[in-house]
Write a protein that binds this DNA or RNA. Structure first.
Length: 261
DNA sequence: AAATTATACAACCGCCGCATT
DNA sequence: CAATGCGGCGGTTGTATAATT
């Protein structure tokens, strides 16, 4: 068991402690946190050291107020992921999980999130106009998509839309009907390089699509749609491009969010 | 100007999953 | 198999500062 360490310092870090910790990690690298206190000459527990580094001292941590686009992303991702702060923070460069969590708790939790994120009244199943369409599986070949010069698939292009008979497309997302006139959609979301997110078991509402197309915001559309969907499976984040080893794949009842082109 | 209340956020705590013994 | 130790996570607290009374 991890017994409580006796006699270790707690509370706010001093400048001197920060310097010691920074020096230690610059010399020995990140990790092996249990060794850090003795290495650095700090009377702190390993967790305190780790936290101080990750949340404050680590280079490239962004400080100051959150920009509008960062807030926007937090709201969207929180809708998809819930309180999984480290996952959310992983999508917001320079922000730590603690920062995001604090921001959410102090600025967003109590507030009603901007209605533009889920404003579509047509999503309401009690609305008689609302007709939910469930996409059916559809097989697409990897070769259907343009391949970049580096060999990677490039989905997020107008060319991809054109070559796949997509019903509509914009620079960042596409939707199209399958053979049963059921609407499917996928969307590029700003991610780390080569990172892919996919959502499964997405159902869509055709009015939803119309509505957002009228609004001219496919970008808002698919994420808000996603946020409203009963997803049977959790969002899956894949760190590598899985298509490199696949020749074909099913769109199935999946919504794809794909890497930076 | 002083007292009180609200806010922001750094830091702590307990729990978890995993690896090792 | 259980015990232990580790890194990591999310919930919560403590406290400095700002805003309000």
């Amino acid at each position: 068991m991890e017994g409580p360490s006796v006699g270790v310092r707690k509370g706010a870090w001093t400048e001197k402690e920060d310097t010691l910790l920074k020096k230690c990690i610059e010399e020995c690298g990140e990790g092996k946190w249990h060794l850090v206190p003795s290495r650095a000459g700090l009377n702190r527990c390993r967790k305190s050291c780790r936290l101080r580094w990750l949340n404050y001292l680590k280079p490239n941590i962004k400080r100051g107020v959150f920009a509008a686009d960062e807030v926007d992303l937090i709201i969207r991702l929180h809708k998809l992921l819930g309180n999984r702060w480290s996952l959310i923070a992983g999508r917001i460069p320079g922000r730590t999980a603690n920062d995001v969590k604090n921001y959410w708790n102090t600025h967003l939790r109590k507030k009603k999130v901007d209605p533009s994120f889920n404003l579509n009244p047509l999503l309401n199943p009690s609305n008689p106009q609302s007709k939910v369409i469930k996409p059916r599986p559809q097989l697409l070949s990897k070769n259907s998509f343009p391949i970049c010069s580096d060999g990677n698939m490039k989905i997020n292009t107008a060319a991809a839309a054109a070559s796949n008979n997509l019903a509509s497309a914009d620079s960042s997302g596409y939707c199209f009907p399958n053979e049963n006139e059921e609407i499917m959609l996928w969307k590029h979301l700003t991610m780390n390089e080569n990172e892919i997110m996919l959502w499964k078991n997405v159902t869509m509402n055709e009015n939803e699509v119309d509505y957002h197309q009228q609004q001219g915001s496919l970008d808002t559309m698919d994420l808000s749609v996603l946020g409203e969907q009963p997803m049977n499976e959790e969002l899956e984040v894949v760190e590598e491009d899985p298509y490199g080893s696949l020749d074909e794949f099913y769109l199935d009842v999946e919504l794809w969010n794909v890497f930076n082109p």
